[in-house]
Nucleic acid binder design. Structure first.
Length: 133
DNA sequence: TTCCTGACTCCAG
DNA sequence: CCTGGAGCCAGGA
C-alpha cells in the first residue's frame, strides 16, 4: 500500500538487454548470489550492503529481487542471511514457510527475536570490507 | 508497447 | 519516535 498515485510521470528510457536463451541469469543476479554465498555462517548482511558492494546501492530493491529468484537457481543461496538495514527478517514470508528463515538463522547461532536479528551490528558482515572493496 | 509492483533505503515532517 | 513520500532497476500483465 505504500504505492499511491505517483504514476512516475518521468518517461524513463529502459535500456533492457534481451536475454539470450542458453545464457544464465544476468551478471547482476549472479553477482548477488556470489556475495550471499560468501557470507560466513553465523553472520548476516543487508541488501544495501550488497547493493553498495556491487555499486548499485540505490537499487537495494534489486538485491531483494535477485534473492527472490535465488530459490530457483542452483546451488541455493542462503537468503536467510540477508536482511534489511534494521536487521529485520523482511523476506521471511517469501521462504517455503514463514518461519523457515528464522529457523535457519537460529541453527547458525543467530538469535532472532521478534523477526529481528539480535546484535545485528555485531553479526553484520559487510562484503565491501570483508571481501575488500 | 505501457503501467504497476516489489525480500530496500534515505529524507522530510 | 513514527509515518509518509520519492528513487532505484527489473519483471510480469
Amino acid at each position: 500500500m505504500k504505492k499511491k498515485a505517483s504514476k512516475k510521470a518521468t518517461p524513463t528510457p529502459r535500456l533492457k538487454k534481451a536475454p539470450v536463451e542458453g545464457v544464465k541469469e544476468y551478471t547482476f543476479f549472479e553477482d548477488v548470489y556470489a556475495v550471499v554465498r560468501q557470507i560466513p555462517k553465523g553472520r548476516v548482511t543487508s541488501y544495501g550492503a550488497i547493493a553498495a558492494y556491487l555499486g548499485t546501492k540505490l537499487s537495494a530493491r534489486m538485491v531483494g529481487w535477485a534473492m527472490n529468484a535465488a530459490g530457483y537457481v542452483t546451488p541455493k543461496v542462503p537468503a536467510q542471511r540477508v536482511v534489511n538495514r534494521n536487521g529485520m527478517l523482511t523476506g521471511k514470508h517469501h521462504f517455503a514457510t514463514p518461519t523457515l528463515m528464522e529457523e535457519l538463522l537460529k541453527k547458525e547461532g543467530i538469535v532472532v527475536e521478534n523477526d529481528t536479528v539480535k546484535n545485528f551490528d555485531k553479526k553484520f558482515w559487510d562484503p565491501s570490507v570483508e571481501l575488500g572493496l
